[in-house]
Design a protein around this nucleic acid. Structure first.
Lengths: 231, 231
DNA sequence: ACAAAAGTGTTGAGAGTACACCCATGC
DNA sequence: GCATGGGTGTACTCTCAACACTTTTGT
């Protein structure tokens, strides 16, 4: 660890915060939740939600707290992303921020009415406004990681409601991967993975033939059959 | 970001350190560099090298500094791993540590003679001694990430000397993946990736037929042909 | 000439991809 | 009965995995 004579109480200490990139599928697009800052620095600019880390609080706890403050949601997928600590990223003092990203199903969100006066809004990822601090870099990083993880894990389901049709699932994948998928191949592959179970119910609204509703099997182990670069 | 009225100078601040898991191939095994702690807490226990983060120093800078202190090596592969910050992980005070891992080719290491009195040694990853703090968890995490990254990137070359034979390369992969590989398939695949160039030289020592020496092409873009989980 | 390591091709199985039509329901 | 979205199978291509012998050098 540190030099033998290191006394961790002795040095100048940076501030530590967490910031959370909150993704959801809203109106057939992948969007990120932003907050409008009211006071300097970067007053009136958009930023991702965050919080300082309390002195006796785990990092993940702080992230979950920031998330719940903005969306009213608990128990959603949260993952540590990266720690950004370049000196000067906050003009006031040295601030190191541990960035997280969260995936929230849209139907779970109920914005806490008037939690504080600040304005929040969802923005489609490719069309973000200018962001405070180094938050553009953080969102960019989170977006790359999300697309990446979709390819070899089943995190995608965290963006969907509890039950869904295969067409809804396919649409979600198409939005996030920005790519059209073949219906037959999609269905064959997703069913072969044995990570879904039929609910027995059918979706009765909308036009056309009612679609079977599925649920993500919580006991599902999504094995990644890696194709190695080599050998 | 944080609450609008947040003044980052106002709160109790944790200490922030970096810790570095240093991997190298030593004596045909994947090993990690450890330091014996001399003072409490955890006196006489082994730990991974680290350092506090200076108030005007970037995180990566601090990691590179810790790495150079122990190995005398600069300009090697370094990657941020994860930030560990559970309250209580250091018994003295709240310490948040940003963990890095580094890949060092064995021939580059020249331990700085007597940099300070502490003892250092290489340990094979599956046979580590008891470690201080939560360092066992950190090494475990780093090892998992390394094996994982080997599969879809070309980081493996960072553990090898500048020039090497295909057999040496294959042996390195076998050690880290803990798996025997087929010589013909290995060679076909690695050459097809077009990330190596012949040096024109041959390795002349050792017995048997001299082997062609290769170099990793710095301009190589190792494309990851992902096999998606679905669709 | 023999020991030691380097180098080299082919075949069969499984996965991926492309592609078009019939089915159930509401109006 | 027609409009709307739901649901289904097959053939071709490509990648992966298994497998054994010849070549070059030093002694």
């Amino acid at each position: 660890m540190m030099p033998e004579n290191y006394d961790p109480t002795r040095f100048d200490r940076p501030s530590v915060t967490v910031d959370v990139v909150i993704f959801s599928l809203v109106d057939d697009a992948l969007k990120v939740l932003l907050i409008k800052r009211e006071s300097p620095p970067y007053a009136q600019m958009w930023a991702i939600p965050g919080s300082f880390v309390k002195i006796d609080e785990a990092l993940e706890e702080a992230a979950v707290r920031a998330l719940a403050d903005e969306t009213g949601v608990k128990d959603v997928y949260t993952e540590q992303l990266f720690t950004f600590g370049k000196p000067g990223r906050d003009p006031r003092t040295r601030v190191i921020t541990v960035a997280y990203f969260a995936l929230v199903p849209h139907d779970a969100i109920h914005h806490k009415a008037g939690r504080d006066a600040s304005e929040t809004a969802w923005f489609a990822v490719p069309q973000l406004p200018a962001l405070a601090f180094d938050h553009a870099e953080i969102v960019e990083y989170a977006y790359r990681r999300l697309r990446y993880k979709l390819e070899y894990t089943s995190v995608g389901f965290q963006l969907l409601p509890d039950v869904f049709t295969l067409t809804e699932l396919q649409k979600a994948y198409e939005i996030i991967l920005s790519e059209q998928l073949d219906k037959r191949n999609f269905r064959r592959k997703i069913l072969a993975a044995e990570i879904l179970e039929e609910t027995g119910e059918k979706k009765k609204d909308g036009e056309g033939r009612p679609a079977m509703l599925y649920r993500y099997r919580e006991d599902a182990v999504a094995e990644v059959k890696t194709r190695r670069l080599f050998p």
